[in-house]
Amino acid sequence: MPTPIDRATHLKAPFFAFAAIITGVAAWSIWGGDIFPSQDPTGDPENWSHEECSRWLRNRNLHPSPLATTAELLERVKANMRAPRS
Results as ranks from 00 to 15, higher is better:
41 P>F: 12
65 S>G: 11
42 T>M: 09
40 D>P: 06
83 A>L: 15
7 R>W: 04
61 N>V: 12
27 A>M: 09
85 R>A: 06
55 R>L: 14
17 A>V: 13
16 F>H: 12
68 A>W: 07
42 T>S: 10
21 I>A: 06
38 S>A: 12
51 E>Y: 08
27 A>H: 06
40 D>L: 07
51 E>K: 14
53 C>A: 12
53 C>N: 08
45 P>S: 04
1 M>F: 06
3 T>L: 02
17 A>R: 08
79 A>H: 15
60 R>N: 02
45 P>A: 09
29 S>I: 12
9 T>L: 14
55 R>F: 01
64 P>T: 05
84 P>H: 01
7 R>Y: 03
74 L>V: 09
4 P>T: 03
24 G>F: 09
3 T>P: 00
24 G>M: 04
46 E>L: 04
54 S>Y: 03
65 S>R: 14
45 P>H: 07
2 P>R: 11
40 D>F: 04
19 A>M: 11
4 P>L: 06
39 Q>A: 13
21 I>V: 08
49 S>E: 05
58 R>N: 14
6 D>K: 02
77 V>W: 03
14 P>L: 04
16 F>S: 10
62 L>G: 01
79 A>K: 15
83 A>T: 15
47 N>V: 06
80 N>L: 04
5 I>M: 12
7 R>P: 00
67 L>W: 11
11 L>V: 00
20 A>K: 01
4 P>R: 09
74 L>W: 07
30 I>R: 08
82 R>Y: 12
76 R>D: 06
17 A>K: 07
76 R>C: 07
42 T>D: 02
81 M>L: 15
8 A>Y: 05
44 D>K: 06
30 I>C: 01
40 D>M: 04
76 R>P: 01
18 F>C: 09
28 W>D: 13
9 T>C: 08
21 I>G: 05
86 S>W: 05
30 I>A: 08
66 P>L: 14
46 E>K: 10
73 L>P: 02
47 N>L: 14
25 V>G: 03
43 G>N: 07
4 P>H: 05
72 E>M: 15
18 F>T: 10
67 L>N: 10
79 A>Y: 14
43 G>K: 09
36 F>Y: 15
19 A>H: 01
